[in-house]
């Protein structure tokens, strides 16, 4: 509720008088823009979505876990591990 009212006040502050109407205008702006995408832009959007899927679903989930978060439970253990690594003779 607080977030909603703050957001509405912010919109009024930057020049939106009728928040609902102006929000609809913004949404229509984007909807209309996406509906009228030329062919090249449709190809590009397909590539963007495929790329984001590969990066965030395949790479991040299966290959790129945060090593220190995964291997240790607390920051003290992480710090000790790093110190050991960077000072081991």
């Amino acid at each position: 509720m607080l977030i909603r009212s703050t957001f509405s006040e912010l919109l009024v502050f930057i020049g939106f008088r009728n928040t609902k109407k102006d929000m609809k205008k913004i949404v229509d702006f984007y909807v209309d823009g996406f509906r009228n995408l030329p062919d090249w832009a449709r190809s590009v959007w397909f590539i963007i979505l495929l790329k984001l899927f590969i990066m965030f679903v395949i790479f991040k989930l299966f290959f790129f876990q945060n090593k220190l978060k995964k291997d240790f439970n607390n920051d003290e253990d992480r710090a000790n591990h790093v110190i050991e690594n960077i000072t081991t003779p």
């Binding site: 790479f59 790129f64 945060n66």
Partner: peptide, 9 residues
Amino acid sequence: FEFGTNWSN
């Protein structure tokens, strides 16, 4: 991603 996985130290 690489910072967290390959370059954690």
